[in-house]
Design a protein around this nucleic acid. Structure first.
Lengths: 339, 339
DNA sequence: ATTTACTATGTTATCGGTAACATTGTGTAA
DNA sequence: TTACACAATGTTACCGATAACATAGTAAAT
């Protein structure tokens, strides 16, 4: 930059003005500076620029590596983030929320105060996310994605998990199912809780029978769906329909049915939640609830960027709609529709 | 920092020395400084620190979002990166190689020169990665992960794709299969090419019949495996074994067999490549080649970190071993083993 | 002609650290 | 006692940009 100034016989300051957008600079000077800049292969030093602005130009993305990184949901969300990024002076840095040092938010707060990032996207909230409160109170621009936190003070973008499960239940009920079981997700995830609660809620409202083993534990992984399916399909009072709290587990349930020589959906209906890419490829293609991961990513990133630009902490809890995707894994129960 | 200095009645410089590691500082002074630092809630400004060092403290991870982000492979690799990171003054920034601006390396070179990152990990190399050459010539510390590039000048960590396919072919051949088909990956990926070449190579060596349609195109996605499987299993000269260039497509092939009421492995053997989490959960559990994604990630990150620390560009091409995982998707061909 | 009001550019300080060299003080060898 | 080496700290400049204010020059208004 100093070189450019010398080359043009002017001050560094004027050069800075040109390069920053050239507001009040004589067109002739401007042209000369730009020419010199090109000639000298000038590139801004983002570090220096950000130092004066007190920003790093990086947005943290905190997510449990083990649970989400490498899943379709993560990928879609992240594509959403990137899409929202119009300006190219912001990039994304990944942090693992499972690391011990992050559990209490200490580490993230520290990283923020060290200007290591300008704001934070939290993907996949846990039940015990006390760390979110502590981040919030540290004044970090923050958006939660996945399920809205308890405190309404915190900005979040989620999808209608409750409504989604409602759609699934309603669909099965309408087909005539009365013995509906549920495979739930990890107990420490909020989305898992929301989905389970709504299932229980539905059963209560419609007065469906729910033997204790109808609520099977799961981990959101295919293997746990398989185990749960086995338990359900070999146990007493066999359900005619099984809701898995996500698609992966639904695949597992279908596998277990196959092992037991039960046909889906003829002998048992199976539904999932997420609408993974593979859901339409499976045999049978899976009836499930579509979760708008891409939109969620995009929207949350937009909120965060806006907050960073305006220096106003993000607010508001957005809940996106979900939709039921009817495919071929559901049918009327084998005994025929109930009345 | 200036505050601390004032508090202790000394200079900023001494404070800096203490905080940087306190080489030649009197223990008493050191203690006083540390106490004051804690009292004043001091946190380094990483931006400023890095400005003087000319480093950003961020490592770029360039990967095609569409192909790899959200896959198990990506997740494992990334966990490997994180594991390799002993020091916490380096974090990872994601870039999408599919973005037009990245195609020729221009954008990445620019980001590097703007101090936006200190080094680059390239995950998932394409055939037409001319941009890698241009990055190399720009002097960017660079490690390629996935398949080694043509130029041996460039540092890479890959796994033995050729050997892996060899293991699969050998396994099937030993079981007695002579009609072996192959579902290949996207034509623009290097790994896909390596795997295909080795299959063709094997067929040539063993003089196996290979009607043109035995080499089916694919995209590495389940749906393409399904289509390829359908074509192979309904076509003439039905193969007794099908090698899919990755696990996802193998799942698709199995689905297609199921649709056609063919049993795996009784009627047709199917193998994959990658050893995804779900491979062991599928029915039948998939015989496949285990790819050490985690180790690849770890190793490549180590190489890059070392390079950044020493200011010597990374070199050497490491090829990690793969192993055949025998499960239940392969058996002797229906006609009995050949001689 | 003088004031006014900009416009275009220059000055200086600052962001929060570090490098390099300068200075003081202290203990030890000559 | 003097000199020298080394330990502990201070000075100054600089990394590469920008903010805030200052100044010179020019055109329009009076």
């Amino acid at each position: 930059m100093t070189d450019i100034a010398r080359e043009c016989g002017i001050t560094k300051m004027t050069v800075s003005r040109v390069l920053a957008g050239g507001d009040k600079v004589k067109p002739a000077t401007k042209a000369r500076v730009l020419a010199a800049a090109k000639k000298l292969n000038y590139e801004v030093n983002t570090l220096a620029k950000n130092l004066t602005k007190g920003r790093s130009g990086f947005v943290g993305v905190a997510t449990p590596f083990e649970g989400l990184l490498g899943t379709c949901y993560f990928g879609e969300c992240f594509r959403g983030f990137s899409k929202a990024r119009k300006r190219f002076d912001l990039d994304f840095v990944l942090f693992d929320t499972k690391l011990e040092s992050f559990q209490d938010g200490e580490k993230l707060t520290q990283l923020y105060r060290q200007c290591r990032f300008d704001g934070l996207l939290v993907l996949g909230a846990h039940m015990n996310d006390s760390f979110i409160e502590s981040l919030k109170s540290a004044g970090i621009p923050l958006v939660i994605i996945g399920e809205k936190p308890l405190s309404s003070e915190i900005c979040s973008v989620s999808c209608d998990n409750t409504g989604g499960v409602e759609l699934l239940c309603e669909h099965l009920y309408t087909l005539g199912h009365r013995r509906i079981a549920f495979v739930e997700g990890p107990k420490n995830l909020k989305v898992a809780k929301s989905r389970r609660e709504q299932y229980l809620n539905f059963c209560r409202t419609r007065k469906l029978i729910t033997p204790p083993h109808y609520l099977q534990p799961g981990t959101f992984q295919m293997s746990s769906g398989r185990e749960a399916g086995k338990a359900l399909l070999t146990g007493h009072t066999r359900p005619t329909a099984i809701i898995a709290a996500n698609d992966s587990m639904a695949f597992g349930v279908i596998e277990s049915a196959r092992e037991l020589s039960l046909r889906v959906p003829h002998d048992v209906s199976v539904v999932g939640f997420d609408d993974l890419d593979d859901a339409s490829q499976y045999s049978p293609p899976l009836t499930t609830v579509h979760q708008p991961a891409f939109e969620m990513g995009k929207l949350s990133a937009q909120k965060l960027f806006k907050s960073i630009d305006t220096d106003i902490l993000p607010t508001g809890q957005t809940v996106l709609n979900v939709s039921l995707i009817l495919r071929e894994s559901t049918a009327v129960p084998p005994s025929g529709p109930s009345t």
